Simulated assay, not measured.
Amino acid sequence: MAGSTPFRKRRFRKSGEPAETQVAPTDPGTGPAAPGGSALEATAVTADTAPAVPSDTETDEGARHRSGARRLKSVRDGVRKGGEGVRDVVLYITDRIIENAPRVPVRDLATLRAQFPGLGPDQLADKLISGAANATSTVGAGIGAAAMLPVPPAMPAELAAEITGVAAIEIKLIAELHEVYGLRPPGTLKQRSVAYLTSWTEERGVDLTKPTTLNAALGGQMKRELRQQIMKRMFRNLPNLMPFMVGAAVGAVMNRRDTRKVAEKVRTDLRRRAVAWDALPDLPPLERPAQPLPEATRAALEAAEPED
């Protein structure tokens, strides 16, 4: 018909050919805007050309995703900062224990036998272990009592003071057990103190057949083991900071138990290699430390020395 749009034959495209672009008719009589035009055709053309508008559901999901990502980042930052804080405390305690080890006064065998006459090696060792356990129990009770008025910034300092004091008591105990069983490590005061520190870290006696020098003992492996030991002590001692005197009771019991446990491990190891007192050569008296310990640690050590 004249004036009408010629009929376009639809041809079937073969497989692999690009699809033809459908062009909407522009004739006023048959276009989408014509009175008799199909609304469905107009909607199809508009849907193909209009930009996609996100729905309310998609917007909410995006907001939740961004909020969750922010929360996750905050948690990660908190964990990282908390880990750095714990690492700093562990490094601080490690340095203090290494610094205090050569300053711990140790009684030699002659002094111990004169102070406790008539006791054999095992009876003397029992006496020393009992005194050290009582002393560490007192330290734990004191730190627990200080937590009655908990001040969060002071709690790491309280924990560090407790672990440092208990370490000094137990290192002194280990050194004197070596004297009792005739197994004094050779070397200078610093070398022996590091050997005792290694014994405390590994919870076993010093092997005299494998003497270690100061540089070897304070190597990377020994420091890593010492930090691991301090980390275990920190987590075990966390209940000591509970308020209302609960921490005092828990600290006293736990410290007494841990000290006896370490002492028995070391004594069992030393007893297998013990040297009889009659077979011991004449050993020189032990040197006295040139520098004194901090006052609080020194008071704790004095409590560890049992009376006759």
Rank of each mutant, 00 (worst) to 15 (best):
F244I: 14
P152N: 06
T59E: 12
P289G: 15
D126Y: 03
V79Q: 05
D88R: 12
Q191H: 07
P102F: 10
A274Q: 08
P18N: 01
P281Y: 10
L238W: 09
D88C: 04
L112K: 12
L177Q: 03
T259L: 11
G140T: 01
D258S: 04
A175M: 03
A303K: 09
P6Y: 09
A147H: 02
P285L: 07
M234F: 06
R96S: 03
E99V: 01
L270A: 09
R64P: 02
A299E: 10
T30Y: 06
S137L: 06
R298V: 04
M254Y: 11
G16Y: 11
P105I: 10
E61M: 12
L197N: 04
W200N: 00
E295S: 05
A157W: 15
R271P: 02
E202D: 12
A147I: 05
L40R: 15
R96Q: 08
A300H: 03
R192L: 07
G247Y: 08
I169A: 01
D60F: 05
V266N: 00
E162W: 03
D77Y: 07
D108E: 04
A39P: 15
A101P: 06
G16C: 08
D95K: 12
S67D: 12
T198F: 02
V246K: 07
T49R: 15
A252R: 14
A300Q: 00
T5K: 00
K73Y: 07
D95E: 13
A101L: 09
F116Y: 15
E170D: 10
D258M: 02
G36E: 15
I93V: 13
T201C: 05
Y196S: 11
A47L: 13
R272M: 09
I163D: 02
L173P: 03
A252Y: 11
D126C: 05
L173R: 02
A217C: 09
A296L: 10
V45E: 02
T209C: 09
I230C: 00
A52R: 09
S137D: 03
L109W: 03
P156S: 15
A252C: 09
P292T: 01
L149V: 14
G82W: 09
L91R: 14
A279H: 14
N255R: 04
G85I: 02
L197P: 02
R87C: 03
E61I: 13
V86M: 04
A145Y: 04
G182M: 06
R184Q: 05
T138D: 08
V253M: 12
V106P: 01
G120N: 08
L218N: 14
A154W: 10
S67M: 13
M254F: 11
Q221I: 14
L241A: 03
K9P: 01
A146F: 03
K223C: 04
G62H: 12
K265M: 07
T26G: 12
K73R: 14
T111M: 05
R273I: 05
R103M: 07
P285D: 13
K190Y: 12
A290R: 12
S4P: 00
N237V: 06
G247E: 05
P284W: 15
D282N: 14
A216G: 11
K223S: 04
T212V: 12
P102C: 13
L149D: 07
M148H: 08
E264D: 05
M231Q: 07
